[in-house]
């Protein structure tokens, strides 16, 4: 993708992924790598920071002789996600507006 997701948007995407249900690091990484081209190496620091900020918690589940660490959205994380959503809608509207202006002007010039 030509356009890349910045750190804040990546935070929001991680929170949104967890809103669908608790999941573990490898899954989140794969999902976001496929979804928005986030690099596999960038996810851990984000998860760790969100955990420290209290936006998500972890719990371990035993699976095939080892522990798998699951991440869960906290109420605080849900609140942050809602704020990001509202922000995104406004951001998208503004970008759309600018892009629409450009197209209108092009049409204007063509006539």
């Amino acid at each position: 993708m030509l356009l890349t997701v910045n750190a804040t948007l990546l935070d929001a995407c991680v929170l949104a992924t967890l809103e669908k249900g608790d999941t573990y690091g490898y899954r989140i990484t794969q999902e976001l790598a496929a979804g928005i081209g986030a690099s596999e190496s960038s996810l851990y620091p984000v998860l760790r920071r969100l955990q420290k900020d209290g936006r998500l918690t972890t719990y371990d589940v035993a699976i095939s002789g080892r522990n798998r660490r699951y991440y869960r959205l906290t109420p605080q994380g849900k609140q942050a996600l809602d704020a990001y959503r509202a922000e995104w809608i406004e951001y998208k509207r503004r970008i759309d507006e600018i892009f629409a202006q450009a197209t209108e002007e092009e049409n204007h010039d063509a006539h």
Binding site: Y24, G25, A33, S41, S42, R48, R68
Partner: peptide
């Protein structure tokens, strides 16, 4: 976290390739 990542991946070589350089990850 990274041990778990290798555990989950189908292939450890593939996982190492995806993750890239440990130096880069450590720097982040």
């Amino acid at each position: 976290y990274y041990e778990e990542y290798f555990d989950e991946a189908d292939s450890e070589e593939e996982a190492a390739r995806q993750l890239g350089s440990p130096a880069d990850i450590a720097a982040r």
